[in-house]
């Protein structure tokens, strides 16, 4: 295995494009090293992105959003007070990944690129409307985060392409987001179901909403039906019931060692209700 430490994304993309064998990018490494250890992947080229200047930074964009470097670990996201104030749901999703030790290494970009439908940080990014900057041999482009995962373990990135930043939009006034997942233990498990809700209020009414579900389809999904169930409502019991119904309808899970299909559908509805309530309270400026 060749271990590369490029200092620009262009160089990283060039090494990747030139690689003829198995290639992996290394950010936090909490997925890649596990796969290597298990013998699932034996990379010929491993490209460590952490030597590229700026990858460890969180920066405010001119528009008021946040540009997050691909090597920013969860523990740094969680300690960034302004980011947490703007996007508590995104940060709490990332902070649920693995242990304290894993938080010291794991990154949003890595969690996204691993392509797991159960990735805890990804529903929050979907709900937030995050934008992903992809750098390839021909330069960089921005795509909506929903376009990155295409199936379990697979992304839309072409050979030679690498994620170079993730950008969260400016937090709208009277907005709030939240992420909840279901796991059998209190920590250390992969989500059996996950749900992120991001919304903006106009007075007491939900003016805009985005709802994402994890672990109920081959990728994290954004559910328009869930959003429509609560837009225009005050998130009263009827709206929450409609949301739960929509979430159950949107969930198309499989049964596996972590949970049954029936369980995932049922709990998708429960989590959507509970996450929406938290997001609503946050948008109202209430502690949640």
């Amino acid at each position: 295995m060749r271990y590369h430490t490029p200092t620009t994304f262009q160089d990283a993309a060039a090494i990747a494009a030139a690689s003829t064998g198995t290639l992996r990018f290394l950010a936090g490494g909490t997925d890649v090293l596990v796969q290597m250890r298990a013998g699932m992947v034996q990379p010929d080229d491993l490209i460590d992105l952490k030597h590229i200047p700026g990858v460890d930074r969180i920066e405010k964009t001119p528009e008021g959003g946040w540009r997050i470097g691909v090597a920013v670990p969860g523990i740094v996201l969680g300690a960034h007070k302004e980011l947490v104030r703007d996007w508590p749901g995104v940060v709490e999703g990332m902070n649920l990944v693995g242990s304290t030790q894993v938080q010291g290494r794991a990154t949003l970009a890595g969690n996204l690129c691993n392509g797991s439908p159960a990735a805890d940080s990804v529903p929050g990014l979907f709900a937030a409307g995050a934008v992903v900057t992809v750098t390839g041999p021909k330069g960089s482009r921005d795509i909506p985060v929903e376009q990155v995962p295409v199936g379990p373990g697979r992304t839309s990135l072409a050979k030679g392409e690498v994620i170079s930043a993730i950008t969260l939009p400016p937090r709208a006034k009277n907005g709030g987001d939240a992420y909840l997942r279901f796991i059998p233990r209190t920590e250390m498990d992969i989500a059996v179901v996950g749900c992120a809700v991001n919304l903006r209020l106009d007075g007491d009414r939900v003016a805009e909403a985005r709802v994402a579900l994890g672990a109920v389809a081959p990728t994290v999904i954004l559910s328009e039906a869930c959003a429509q169930a609560i837009i225009g409502t005050t998130l009263d019991d009827a709206a929450l019931a409609a949301l739960a119904k929509a979430a159950k309808g949107a969930a198309k899970p499989i049964s596996d060692k972590r949970g049954t299909k029936e369980f995932r559908i049922e709990v998708a509805g429960v989590l959507a209700r509970r996450a929406a309530r938290i997001a609503y309270d946050r948008a109202k400026g209430m502690k949640a």
Binding site: A38, R185, E187, K257
Partner: peptide
Amino acid sequence: NPVFLDYRIPVASD
């Protein structure tokens, strides 16, 4: 489930 990720022994917070 031949890994501690999915062979779920109690963790401290459980």
